[in-house]
Design a protein around this nucleic acid. Structure first.
Lengths: 146, 146
DNA sequence: TTATTTATTAAAGTTAACTTTAAGTCAAGG
DNA sequence: CCTTGACTTAAAGTTAACTTTAATAAATAA
């Protein structure tokens, strides 16, 4: 199945301008052309899915291009490509861990505002209650007056 | 306890230039000054911790400033601040979910390159093996030739 | 055939979040 | 007192990842 750029945009969720930008940056090698107009195949759409994965997990475009270029060089580059994927996988694991840490900070704030709203004032809050009520340790509260 | 900007930088992990930038952007209200020089208190450092949490979970600086400004307006703004925190908390949950989805794509790639390296070539890979070996569904592979 | 829509390019513009620079001020050690 | 290092500001510069513009060409509908 073949697609125009606007169909590819539809299918991938990327605007046509971004697809052209990625093409120009070398992220989409071997896109076919018919009278100068890009013709996308399913393989291209699947590649864009991988690009989106790498991009949305924080890989810079330069590095994505490196990966794509290695891919087109064939089996000689398997090890190098594997290292890139492994590193990115670990990077995602680290990000999840960090987000889970930040989530705890926000959980505390959620508790804090629930308490404050129930009492009508922040000044009524006893931070020790957080550990008593949730079993979790309260993170440092910016509003605490030392 | 009081700190200079470089001590605050040390403690928060933010460079002094960034702390000054945040101050200028209104993210650090009421920083004390002594002869024009900033004097940071523990409360300020804890606020910076919250800023880092909000920033690193994707909140734009403008919105962080809104939140900080509401905070300094007192109990009248509790509900509004709570909405911001609730939304950010949900945003973090969504991010974690998305990262877990992308992780599956990278898990597949990890499997793929292990197989390819063992066989010495990508062409030897049978994608059906992924589901057989891991019980997980293989995501679309960009290298598949339809 | 003509009009409209969709495609193309190169180049310039945008945005967020800093960072660097330059010129000057303050504080501490010798 | 003088030098050295840390602090100050405003303003300009940087970077990544796009987006917009303008001018043009190809495809599609009437």
């Amino acid at each position: 199945m073949s697609y125009t750029i606007s169909e590819a945009a539809q299918k991938t969720g990327l605007p046509p301008s971004t697809i052209r930008f990625y093409d120009k940056e070398g992220l989409l090698p071997n896109i076919k052309r018919k009278n100068g107009i890009r013709v996308f195949e399913d393989m291209d759409l699947r590649l864009m899915g991988l690009l989106t994965c790498l991009k949305n997990t924080g890989m810079p475009i330069k590095r994505i291009r490196d990966y794509v270029e290695l891919t087109s060089k064939g089996d000689d580059t398997l090890q190098e490509r594997y290292e890139i994927i492994k590193a990115q996988r670990q990077f995602v694991l680290d990000q999840i861990e960090q987000l889970q840490y930040y989530l705890e900070e926000l959980d505390f704030k959620d508790w804090y505002y629930n308490k404050a709203l129930a009492a009508g004032s922040e000044s009524a809050i006893n931070l020790d209650d957080y550990e008593k009520e949730t079993g979790k340790k309260a993170p440092d509260d910016p509003n605490r007056r030392d």
